[in-house]
Structure formats: C-alpha cells, structure tokens
Nucleic acid binder design. Sequence first.
DNA 1: CGGGTCGTTGACTCTCATCAACCCTCGTGG
DNA 2: CCACGAGGGTTGATGAGAGTCAACGACCCG
Lengths: 245, 245
Amino acid sequence: MLSDLPHVLSRMMRKLDRRASLEQSDRDALLDLPFRLRSVDPHQYIAREGDRTNECCLILDGFAYRQKTTADGARQILSIHLRGDFIDLEAALLRHADHNIQALTRCEVAMVSAPAVRALQLKHPRIAQAMWVDTLIDASIFREWILNIGQRGAKARVAHVLCEFARRVELAGLGDAAGYQFPMTQEQLGDATGLTTVHINRTLKVLDAEGLIKRKRRLIQIPNWQLLREVAGFSELYLHLDQTE
Amino acid sequence: MLSDLPHVLSRMMRKLDRRASLEQSDRDALLDLPFRLRSVDPHQYIAREGDRTNECCLILDGFAYRQKTTADGARQILSIHLRGDFIDLEAALLRHADHNIQALTRCEVAMVSAPAVRALQLKHPRIAQAMWVDTLIDASIFREWILNIGQRGAKARVAHVLCEFARRVELAGLGDAAGYQFPMTQEQLGDATGLTTVHINRTLKVLDAEGLIKRKRRLIQIPNWQLLREVAGFSELYLHLDQTE
DNA sequence: CGGGTCGTTGACTCTCATCAACCCTCGTGG
DNA sequence: CCACGAGGGTTGATGAGAGTCAACGACCCG
C-alpha cells in the first residue's frame, strides 16, 4: 500500500480517537492491526449465529445489518450499520456469535484478527475503552429499538427508523437535509420494525401524504425535520452523539 | 467490616473472574473499589434518563429493571436484573444515562464510584475485558428481546420471558426445577413484552390451561421444560452461559 | 423483450387493545 | 374484629390496527 494514501483503518482510528483520548502509541498500534480486505455481495453472510468467530468486521463502505430468526423462520433485523462501524467487536470477546450479520448493499470490509484485537486491548487500555464505548452505544440503540417495536404504532415506528437513519447517515457524510438514499427494501424495513411489507407500504404512503417525508424511489427527503421528529418521538440522546464527535 | 465476613463485592468478583482469567492483583483491586451501600424501595429510581451519572450500580440483593418511555407515556421494560448483576456499567463510560433503572422489589445495592471503575479499567485491562464481556452479554439479551417482541406472538413471547427468567434465576441460585418466584406484576410483564395487562392475563391462563406452566400466585413452575422451550422458541445460546460459569 | 425483484392496492381476517366491571387478598385503622 | 381501601388479578364485550392472501404494476438488467 502506498504510504501517501490514507490508511484503510484510518477512519476507524479517528472515530475511536474521538471516543477516548488516545495517545500516539495507541493510534500507531491501531493502524498496525492485521486485517484482510473482503468484498461482500448483498445478502451474503459476514458472520453466522453459532459461529466460533475469529475475526471482527469493520465496514469500509456499504451497508450491513444484524439479523436473527425465530424457530419458525420469522426474521428480525436488529440493527443497520454503515461505513466506519466496527460491527462484531463482540467477536473479540464472546466465544460464539449469537446472531447473523449480512451485507445489505455491496460492502467493502476489513476483517480484523480477533486475537490481535484482544491483545491490543490488554496492551492499550485506552483503545479498549474506546472500543467498549462503541459497543455500549450499540447497546443503547438496541434498547431504543426495543422501545420502538414494543410501544410505538406503525407510523411512529417507521418514522423513528427514518429519523435514526437520517442522523447516522449524516454523521457518516452520506446524506444531508436534501435527503438520503435508504438502502433497504420495504420488506427489510418491515423486518426491522416488526411489521409486514404491506403495512410498511401503507405506512410510508401515509407519511408521504401527510408531508412528513418525500419519496423518490429509495431517496428519502425530510421536508420538516421537527415535524417528523415529533411524530416519531425521536430524541437523539440515545445515540450518545456527544461521544461520537 | 469484619474481615471474616465475605466481602460485599465478592460475588461480583467471582463472576468477573469466570469471564476472564484474572490475576491476584486484579482480584484485590476489584475488592478495593470504593462503594456505598444503599437500600432501594420498590419503584424507586436507581438512575434516571438524562442523568450525568457518576456511580455504577451493583445489585447485592433483590430485582431491578431498566425502563424507558415514549413521548406519550408508554413504558417499555428493557431488561430485568438480579443479584450479582452489575447494571449500569455503562455509566462508567457514557456521559449520560439513556434509560431509567428502577427497583422491582426492595433492593440492596452497592453504588460504585464511576471514576474509580474507569481508573481500574486502565490499570487492569483484564478486569476491563471481564466487565466488557458483561455488557456484551447484556447487549445480546437486548437483541433477543428485539426478536421476541418484534416477531413472536403473545404466547411464545410470554413463554420466552419465563424461560429466560427461569434460567437466569437458576444460575443465581434463586430457583430450580421446583419453580421460582416471579417478581413482576402482570402489568410489568406486559410492559416487558409489549402487550397489555389484559392480554398477559389471558395468555398466562392459556399457558396454564395447556399445562406449560403452573401458577400459584407469583410462583411459576415449569412441569415440562422441553415443551415450554419449544413453545417459546427458546435457545439459550444468546445468554452465553459458556462464559458465565 | 422477457423475467425477476420490488412496490402497490384491495378485500378479508384475526390478534391484540380498549373499556368497563368485578373479585380477591392483604394490610391498616377504627 | 370487622370495615375499608388499594393494588393486583380476572372476565366480557367491542373495536382498531396490523396481518394475510392475492393480484397487478413498475422498473431494471441481461
């Protein structure tokens, strides 16, 4: 790799740097992590439930999601991830994966050796803390999803996912007030919210008809952020943005 | 404190010891953590959403739960915790609490200084890993709850909570095959599953009528574990018990 | 041009919510 | 000792929100 190109892991390093105050030796050690690059096609698995995983997956580009299914085959999408997300950090410490990770769109990922990550944590406690914060924020988002699915009606539920996604996509520099490209089919959005495709379709139409969102194919625009926010009951406290940038 | 009494923090220490191989210096440092004891009445808050928390809460006795509410007041219970659980470890690293923690029954807790926990993590990376594993398992349980609420019907949903609780209570030495004392009202169980009190009541009756559980007030007995397990679609992989004992 | 994936729509069904009683149990105080 | 009240549990009647089934339409890509 040419040394004047930005290092593949540099985005992840900068993100962790914001989570805890790293020292130069920490930063160097992070960039020294051994990894292999991998391209993943849509629907392809990055990790499988039950796997004894040995690598952690860092998304360099594209979208991925966590998913698990009930015994009778109903699928629940647990979270959506985008570039810069170090999903599967838990693989470094948990012996078995408890859910599946799949590519949503075509993804470029760096598969980082789990033993190397573990060793890094022991030698660089500040890095461990920064990574830990990452997984704690993930957990906070899971909690909000429990609330979302358990207590909100279809309209608020879908609106909430759109709000969260808008905010995270904006942070990753992939969208702005002018709108963003939503990477999921309506079926997938249904599996993320615990609703059926048909009902998602109708709910999106309602949101559109009421002027809360505008849709052009998968492009989502939010003409009045404040309004959608209220319909969704969206409060971004749970994203812990004060520890993100 | 008399030195021949078991240390208040010793249960927690033993649990963390099982999660990662600690050295003697790690164990000593854990037991040296500064804390204050507190008795918490049912319904009383241990932490509040938005709080800039400065203490982590370790449950010594009793039951507690995490909870958050939507803008229009619907409450969702996010998890249930029992003695030995170090809830609120996230308080050590996240600046604000993103949900509430309340006592379910009368609780004895140790409030541990968050800065002390942070310092410990930096000085004893193995402790940090052990604690991290703890929060990762919590996150795994959140994921299972998302699946439970999002995809299972009322019967399986309630059965699943009962299965999980049975398993965890057993691990904590608070119940066995003969049954366990369920610490929640039907209203609280409803808020944990995203169902109404009325529907919980009817669902419990169905489970009882079908012989899947026996109830005597709050005492729950499971005459045929395998059967309930199947109805619930319960697989304990997500509890990561191989890293618990 | 054709096939596949994704989105849209209508008609019908069913699970679960809502509303409204009533009951039981237990602790308290007159 | 009994009356009372409060919290929790139980039951019935009714309705709404979301699921199901089935068909059609739009778009993309080879």
